[in-house]
Nucleic acid binder design. Structure first.
Length: 434
RNA sequence: CGGGCUGGAGUAUGCCGGUAGUACGCACGCUUCGGGUGCGUGUAGACCGGGUUCAAUUCCCGGCAGCCCGACCA
């Protein structure tokens, strides 16, 4: 992709294989820092900046450097796989929004939605930066969907969303600009919608499990915002969270404080006795939209009997940039970042222990072999002390570290250290290069 | 949006109405070589505008930017 939106558009492509699988750390432009910047309090942003994954551009606005982008793309890849498995069709919508379509649903006015970034065209007229995409996608669908035979449809994208938050905080967990995977479903009726909705809910559970935060993530009953009375959130327990939820550990369900009433508890079959109050961060949200948007924007279809009916919609969001922050908050330790296997920017981090000729030669050869076999590996080939390399390697948090020292030269067996557990195993070269 | 705080080398900081100090980083040399090794030399800095003053990085006002608490958070 070669247009001005390359970085954003990148998320829409089959990202991973586009990378060269290897990187020499002496060539990596991002550097680590000993200290966190004084203007960051959030643990996630402090560590991500120290490790050179992100750059803070402005309050609540972050750039993703090579390591951060790789990590983000890995998160996106996990989500994409599940969306495709659902039959989701990926598209990529524009961030610039047409005032006209949002006016029709009464969501353009600043009195109704106060987080718009709005600007104007030189040629006249206003536009806004997308806060979400129900309106434009519903309009697109109205040009393509006209028969019951066309339904159901699931369409999704990875897109930058902009929200003019009064106060950004919590590092990348709540920015003014962030990445969102938004899926929208279009169904013939409530019954079909419910079936789709339930499949998406299951897919979300699998996604968070793969991210390594499944056991701390709860389906949470919450308010429906502008759309409907209620929605379901996926809330991950974390002291860094902004929400308060009441959790039933046994049933893996929770209730957001905002709808924590006796009536709602009864409806959900939850008992106050077993619920515990916890802080949590919202990592996903699923909504039944009914026919609100389809009615207002004229998205109808013809039934088998020739009648016209509005399409029943749902929308389902996950914020990859927020997830990145949540994973840091939950898994990082006192030494630095710790990435789950499928999210780590590289599978392996080779660390050569000194500049002795035979050690450098052995490390070089191992690196070349791994790269040739498409294994994603970062190689610390810098001329710095072993201690510094280890400390920085811990900070970077790559899943597995391969230490190349004297014994590796002698035996051709390599010490592989698991970043999360610290467990050390000896692995033969053939196994590492597959 | 209400309340509070801050603004100095690339980063983190000490002191201060009168020549801006330290650590890390970076460059060079030596040293070390399995947990940010040690030493030396060098490099580099007061957000913007106005006011008070003999003199402002320091005090005052305004702007801009950042942070914290609250409110807000499709």
């Amino acid at each position: 992709m070669n247009d001005l939106r390359t970085t954003i558009a990148y998320f829409a492509g089959p990202a991973q294989k586009a990378y060269n699988s290897g990187m020499r750390q002496s060539k990596l432009f991002s550097k680590t820092r000993r200290e966190a910047p004084s203007d960051e309090v959030a643990k996630n942003a402090q560590l991500l900046i120290r490790a050179g994954y992100i750059h803070k551009e402005m309050a609540g606005v972050y750039s993703y450097l090579p390591l951060g982008l790789r990590t983000l793309n890995n998160i996106a890849a996990i989500i994409r796989a599940e969306m495709n498995a659902l039959g989701g069709q990926e598209l990529f919508m524009t961030a610039l929004q047409d005032k006209e379509v949002w006016s029709r649903t009464d969501r353009w006015d600043d009195e109704k939605v106060d987080i718009w970034f709005k600007t104007s065209f030189k040629s006249g007229g206003e536009t806004g930066l997308a806060i979400t995409h129900e309106e434009p996608l519903t309009r697109i669908m109205s040009e393509h969907v006209s028969s019951y035979r066309d339904l159901p449809v699931l369409a999704y994208q990875f897109q930058t969303k902009f929200r003019n938050e009064l106060r950004a905080k919590s590092g990348v967990m709540r920015g003014k600009e962030f990445l969102m995977k938004d899926l929208y479903s279009f169904a013939k009726n409530d019954e079909e919608h419910k079936a789709v909705y339930s499949k998406v809910r299951d897919a979300y559970k699998r996604i968070f499990a793969k991210m390594g935060i499944g056991d701390k993530t709860f389906v949470t009953f919450a308010s429906g915002g502008l759309f409907s009375q209620f929605s379901e959130e996926f809330q991950t327990l974390s002291d860094a969270g902004e929400d308060v939820i009441y959790v039933d550990e046994e049933k893996k369900l929770a209730v957001n404080k905002e709808v924590y009433t006796d009536e709602n508890l009864a409806k959900l079959g939850l008992s106050k006795d077993v619920l515990t109050e916890q802080k949590a961060i919202e990592v996903g949200n699923i909504f039944s939209l009914g026919t609100r948007f389809s009615s207002q924007l004229g998205l109808t279809y013809t039934t088998e009997t020739g009648a016209k009916e509005p399409v029943v919609m749902g929308s389902y969001g996950i914020g990859p940039t927020r997830l990145l922050g949540v994973i840091v908050e939950l898994l990082a330790d006192e030494k630095g970042l710790v990435w789950p296997e499928h999210i780590s920017p590289y599978e392996y981090h080779i660390v050569s222990v000194n500049q002795d000729e035979d050690i450098v030669k052995t490390a070089d050869e191992l690196y070349d072999d791994m790269v040739r076999n498409g294994i994603e590996v970062l190689y610390d080939d810098r001329q710095v002390s072993a201690g510094q390399k280890f400390a920085e390697s811990d900070l970077l948090g790559i899943t597995r570290r391969i230490v190349v020292g004297r014994d590796a030269v002698a035996t051709d067996m390599f010490e592989v250290v698991d970043r999360a557990t610290g467990a050390i195993t000896k692995v033969a070269r053939a196994e590492l290069t597959r």
